[in-house]
Design a protein around this nucleic acid. Structure first.
Length: 589
DNA sequence: GGCATTAAGG
């Protein structure tokens, strides 16, 4: 908070200075100066004052190419890439000749907005105006074609270049990597006349992308010189390929660590479900105090809190984040909304949502599904309309939240109509998840026969999740015939999952059909797989507890829960620390 | 000018 407002007043100060300079420029008659104007535009851009820059620019009667370039650069710096491309069209209309600085920046903006066609037009202009030999222009063209999946065109530009430096080689190799063609990438890598550390890192990262950790490691070990990015690339490579041990080892081994190293380790734990370790590593980071967390760290830690139900820790991170100026960060805000919603404090989630100045699609999706999950369907639906008024286009995930809201409120007809509007009004093709929501909507409202009809009419084959949910509703509404049908499908789809048998067995049990219960137990034994007790954790009085969703309590779970609690709160002497909460079978469903 | 981390769903 402090930092943000500090930066804000600083900016006001600078803007004031800019106005003073501007006044002087006007009074001294230098307004039309080819030398001064581009410099002022650049200054505005750095202050994120592009509207002001535009005003200045529009006042000039005869803009030269340098001023145009300053405008392109300014818009590009402030991420207004679409504007760059549009502005370039205007420049062409005015017959101003682009120079060698114009093409790279405009081409880069084309890359950013995926405007391959506009980029191709620029390529024609490059050839017409004789900038083909310029290495910066060539570089930008290679980038354009390799990100636009036109790798042959990129290679053509590469092949026709008079001189190629290591940057050009890197981009070309990276182009092959992003097309998934690691073999061609490697061939070029071997042919490159010069290999610096960035090129090596690119190649290592390419192997990691295709999950070839062996080859990545071989190259990593061969590198003549490693920088912190080389270590971080390898480290997060292991983390994302499930090898947490190796990731940890590299982390301890590396000569120098920055925030990416910590985020790699923390993210590695998070991706592999080791959420307690996420919190541990974060604490260690703060204790060591050499490297400060950034927004990515905060987001990952918050999502670990979410998964653990560690509300108090999450609250602490919230305070930490605000105190350190992450308040304006959209990702942090989104992670906070999700954390509060999933940890049961929907009011706090709503507060965070309302306090956010900038919201994105994920912000809306998170709060909508948060409200829906809390049974506040009406709130979810009204935010959906607010979202559209704010100009945010819903996507498939928005509709999952919406359909979930309808399900919780029993609004079957509304749900059906939202489902239809997806494709009709938003051109979103429903995915299996959406069909799943619809089956749920009907089934939970007790309209089981319609739910089954819906499954039969779906253009996609129903998956195990759909049948399992249907089976769940069959228990609620005591519909044995449909339950048997659902189990039949489920055993085809996932014959090894004992949970499904347990569900049907429970249904028989509810109806007192003990012979059938016994039959199912035998069938289940025949699969050879035993159902593990489901576990979840919840934080009570600053203690994260592990709850078992099963009446059977296995010793391993208790030991694991205790170990995790000690790790999480080593200084905690609270008597509740060692209590394991056992929910009865369906207490939390 | 080229290489690394983050948030949402049945």
């Amino acid at each position: 908070m402090k930092d943000t407002s500090g930066a804000h007043s600083e900016q006001l100060e600078t803007t004031k200075h800019l106005h003073q300079i501007q006044t002087q420029v006007v009074t001294s008659g230098l307004e039309q100066s080819d030398y001064i104007t581009p410099r002022i535009i650049t200054a505005c851009a750095q202050l994120k004052q592009m509207t002001y820059a535009r005003k200045m620019f529009d006042k000039i009667t005869d803009q030269n190419v340098v001023s145009w370039n300053a405008m392109f650069n300014g818009y590009a710096q402030n991420e207004f890439h679409r504007t760059v491309v549009v502005l370039f069209t205007q420049m062409k209309k005015l017959d101003v000749m682009p120079n060698c600085f114009t093409f790279p920046v405009v081409l880069k903006s084309c890359v950013k907005i995926n405007a391959l066609r506009e980029g191709e037009e620029l390529h024609c202009l490059v050839l017409k105006n004789g900038f083909r030999a310029n290495i910066f222009v060539g570089t930008a063209l290679i980038e354009l074609y390799s990100t636009g999946k036109a790798i042959e065109a990129a290679y053509k530009v590469f092949g026709e270049m008079d001189e190629r430096n290591v940057v050009v080689w890197t981009l070309m190799i990276n182009g092959y990597i992003s097309c998934g063609d690691i073999v061609s990438a490697r061939c070029l890598f071997e042919l490159a006349p010069e290999r610096d550390v960035i090129l090596w890192n690119t190649m290592v990262s390419g192997y990691i992308d295709v999950r070839n950790m062996i080859e990545a490691r071989k190259l990593f070990d061969q590198m003549p010189k490693k920088d912190v990015i080389s270590w971080n690339t390898m480290l997060s490579g292991y983390a994302n390929n499930g090898d947490v041990e190796e990731c940890k080892r590299l982390f301890e081994e590396m000569p120098e660590r920055n925030v990416f190293s910590w985020n790699g380790l923390i993210g590695g734990y998070a991706n592999n479900g080791l959420f307690f370790e996420v919190l541990d590593a974060f604490k260690r980071m703060l204790t060591e105090g050499r490297v400060f967390p950034n927004d990515a760290t905060i987001v990952t830690v918050l999502s670990a809190c979410t998964r653990l139900g560690a509300l108090d820790f999450g609250k602490w991170v919230h305070v930490y984040a605000e105190y350190n100026g992450y308040k304006g960060n959209v990702c942090v805000g989104n992670a906070l909304i999700d954390m509060y919603a999933k940890c049961g404090i929907i009011e706090n989630a709503v507060d965070v949502f309302n306090s956010m100045d900038t919201k994105d699609l994920i912000t809306w999706n998170t709060i909508i599904s948060g409200l829906a999950m809390h049974g506040r369907g009406a709130g979810a639906l009204s935010l959906f309309h607010e979202m559209k008024n704010a100009g945010e286009m819903p996507d498939g995930i928005t509709f999952i939240g919406i359909l979930c809201a309808c399900t919780h409120m029993g609004l079957v007809e509304e749900g059906l109509s939202y489902f239809q509007s997806m494709a009709m009004n938003y051109s979103i093709v429903p995915q299996i998840e959406h069909y799943g929501c619809m089956v749920d909507l009907l089934a939970r409202a007790g309209r089981l026969a319609e739910a089954v009809d819906f499954v039969k009419s779906m253009p996609i084959e129903a998956d195990a999740v759909i049948w399992a949910n249907l089976l769940g509703s069959c228990r609620v509404y005591k519909n044995v015939e449909l339950a048997e049908l659902a189990l039949e499908r489920l055993t085809e789809l996932e014959p090894k999952n004992p949970t499904n048998f347990v569900m049907l067995s429970n249904i028989y049990g509810d109806l007192g059909r003990w012979k059938d219960v016994a039959r199912i137990k035998v069938a289940m034994r025949d699969t050879g797989f035993k159902k593990l007790p489901g576990c979840s954790s919840i934080e009570v009085n600053e203690v994260v507890m592990l709850g078992c969703l099963s009446r059977e309590l296995d010793r391993k779970s208790i030991v694991r829960a205790e170990a995790n609690m000690i790790k999480l709160l080593p200084q905690n002497n609270h008597p509740l620390t060692f209590i394991v909460v056992i929910f009865s079978t369906f207490a939390s469903v």
